[in-house]
Design a protein around this nucleic acid. Structure first.
Lengths: 285, 285
DNA sequence: GTTCCGCATGAATCGATAG
DNA sequence: ACTATCGATTCATGCGGAA
């Protein structure tokens, strides 16, 4: 099949089925794939739900296409968590890991997203679920990684030093450590920063009315900074309300978003427009 | 085979091979199994290390015996983490989960132990590993669980209390209380407490006195409070330096410990003696 | 008695070197 | 080519000695 070159897809929300759109995208063309696909049996009212026991079978062909479109030195970050069913955790996620390895993916790491404010609730046999998996897959042992881009202030250093900062600086400092913005004092801190671990401690974003995005900007933002440079291409095959696109824009990366639900596509485009205006206003673009 | 009744094993450290000792323990006799088995290829200077690719095969017969000795309403908490090898996470842990389900275990939950102080190091392809799995298995859908026993202090009482602590102590206190650790937990009123999540945040106990236990007392302590009542029997088939026994004693539970290394057995017995003395001194036992 | 600083110590992992 | 061993890297913690 003759494929259109990649620049036809860049900075667009492609409204349609992943299984039809992905095959149109040329091979070895994106630097990072980061996504939070619909979880099994969740959000029934919005998506055509995928039963837990068919999840692997449904996702594997998509994973295979994703591997094709990813550059050899690129990364795939899959944010996912198995549901509990009949008093047990379902096994479709760990089965998926094994099957993706059979496809040729390397399972490099499992990052944990430790959710600061998790969904409330009480059950007799378990507590609130406060974490999700962020599975890191690659095509090769060697891949692009920019660890300095996500360094964080030292534990003790931060505590000691915060006392001497004004309230205003404190705010800036806080926002920096969470999302990576606020460059004012970043140089000043450089020597006193350390590398993070494989546990991300981030709050979920309270749903802004329309979309039920449990996927906070800070999450794709962290992986985009870690695995790409400015100008690189970030693909999210289940982009929902456009969170990954927003993160990409903020970081001067290019995005490709795929979304099947038209209402979500519209929502994403609205959010992106606002973000672009913000960038223009701040003289960024 | 004629088995001795369970009281012959209670409050003892049994020095020998798990595979020989477990079959002597009667069926349906312990309320909780909590353990941190030797990880694949780790602690080579101490244990005969189990290669990663033989790990499942090695552990499955043990898991089967554990299921036999566990009471029907009991729980099994397995603390484990896969290693990274050749740039990838190994799959033996997730394979083990699938195989244990085949044996009849229910995989109820995966708790995350978020380690505050993880092992240092820097690599081109990953960050420091700051978490471990605490896999919760049971025999039945219904099992014993005492959620109130691990509730976390919050509210005004805690705030008042915190005022009088130094900044540094406050940090420590908070990190402990986030996951429900901390010794004075019983002092809080019920209305000032909330249920924890499935993420436990606590430091490892490193370079402590004579023994260095990567398995901190607070970890078995939390699960013992959650899954047992006073007087119940707690089994640790890889008890090492006796951490699980210490936790059991502190909480007025009975322990059964198995350990293959004689030096560790001695160490465990020493620690237990000290703990018993402490309990006597405080008028507990 | 406190507080503070310096130091050794890990359930690690990768890349290079050696056989 | 494949395995075994070693050095380099890194940081929260608890201890001991000093002020």
């Amino acid at each position: 099949m003759e494929l259109k070159p990649i620049y036809n897809f860049i900075n667009k929300i492609l409204c349609g089925d992943v299984k039809e759109i992905l095959p149109q995208i040329p091979s070895n063309s994106v630097d990072l794939i980061v996504t939070s696909p619909p979880y099994a049996d969740k959000r029934k009212n919005v998506y055509n739900t995928i039963p837990a026991n068919k999840y692997v079978e449904w996702f594997l062909p998509i994973a295979n296409e994703l591997r094709r479109v990813l550059k050899d030195n690129g990364s795939f970050v899959l944010n996912i968590k198995e549901k509990a069913e009949n008093g047990e955790r379902h096994t479709y996620v760990i089965e998926l890991i094994l099957e993706m390895k059979n496809q040729g993916w390397l399972w490099v790491e499992e990052y944990i997203w430790h959710k600061k404010n998790s969904y409330p609730g009480k059950w007799p046999n378990r507590f609130r679920d406060a974490w999700e998996r962020c599975l890191h897959f690659t095509k090769q042992k060697k891949f692009k990684m920019y660890q300095e881009a996500v360094m964080i202030p030292t534990g003790n250093w931060a505590k000691e030093r915060l006392k001497n900062l004004s309230e205003r600086d404190k705010m800036r400092f806080e926002s920096r450590s969470k999302s990576g913005f606020g460059k004012n004092i970043s140089n000043w801190l450089k020597r006193d920063k350390v590398y993070p671990t494989n546990v991300l401690y981030l709050p979920t974003e309270c749903s802004n009315k329309n979309h039920s995005a449990a996927f906070p900007v800070a999450l794709p933002s962290w992986f985009i900074r870690l695995f790409t440079e400015e100008g690189d291409i970030v693909l999210d095959p289940f982009i929902g309300s456009g969170t990954t696109a927003v993160a990409s824009l903020q970081l001067n990366r290019k995005y490709i978003g795929i979304e099947i639900k038209e209402e979500y596509c519209k929502l994403a485009i609205e959010r992106i427009k606002k973000e672009v205006k913000l960038n223009l206003f701040s003289g960024k673009a």
